[in-house]
């Protein structure tokens, strides 16, 4: 999933207090799971804005709404559109995709990002999320016993650990596992360590962000011009 973290309260307050009527728009998918921008977090921000505006003597109205997904046209239903129309500005707690999608759908509305989108990751344990994928466009994890050096090595090294691997941890952050320590351990267990003596040649980054913004087309799924839903 996409993992995000709520922006600092003061930033959000500064944005909200510029308007008379603000809608907090939550997203029910990834940011709900990582507890950054679901219904619960929308409610907390709502309470916080109300308390702060009282403390600071500002006067603006806050309303809330959460939809299943902000990266999908389908979930911006009539009720949502009505609520957005009724507000002067929207703070969306969806990931960067949702923020943009919402802006595209309501071009006349001021839309603010309520969270910082951080990475594609997993819930490693309750309350702890870690990065696992960098979306490079050409998956190579199977060469490395299922551990991605692109996403999980601080230097994206593809031919083994750097000199900074220490006791299984990365020199950049003592809390972070050295991806290469994990790869070596797993390949040793699988008895495939010698496979690492093959040189991994320079990676083709054209499939990654470096190749420009990417798009995927499934012709078989696309609707004919006439049957497309009206925006």
């Amino acid at each position: 999933m996409i993992v995000a973290e709520r922006k600092l309260f003061d930033d959000l307050y500064a944005k909200a207090s510029k308007h008379k009527k603000v809608l907090l728009l939550g997203c029910g998918t990834c940011v709900t799971v990582c507890m950054a921008g679901g219904e619960k977090e929308v409610d907390i921000l709502d309470s916080q804005l109300k308390l702060a505006s009282r403390e600071r003597g500002d006067d603006f109205e806050v309303t809330t709404h959460t939809i299943v997904r902000q990266c999908d046209d389908e979930f911006f239903d009539e009720e949502t559109s009505r609520k957005i129309a009724a507000a002067d500005a929207v703070i969306t707690l969806a990931c960067g995709v949702g923020v943009q999608f919402c802006s595209e759908k309501y071009p006349e509305k001021r839309v603010y990002a309520g969270v910082n989108t951080v990475f594609y990751g997993a819930t490693v344990e309750q309350g702890l999320w870690e990065e696992r994928c960098a979306g490079c466009g050409e998956c190579i994890v199977d060469q490395f016993a299922g551990i991605c050096p692109v996403a999980r090595c601080a230097k994206s090294l593809m031919n083994g650990p750097c000199g900074g691997s220490s006791n299984g941890k990365c020199e950049v952050d003592k809390e972070t596992d050295c991806a290469w320590a994990l790869i070596v351990k797993r390949m040793k267990e699988l008895g495939t360590l010698e496979e690492l003596s093959e040189i991994t040649l320079p990676k083709d980054w054209s499939t990654s962000r470096d190749g420009g913004p990417r798009r995927i087309v499934h012709e078989s799924l696309r609707l004919d011009e006439g049957t497309k839903k009206e925006g």
Partner: peptide
């Protein structure tokens, strides 16, 4: 912490 952010 959340309260403190709001000034309460």
């Amino acid at each position: 912490k959340l309260l403190e952010e709001t000034g309460v």
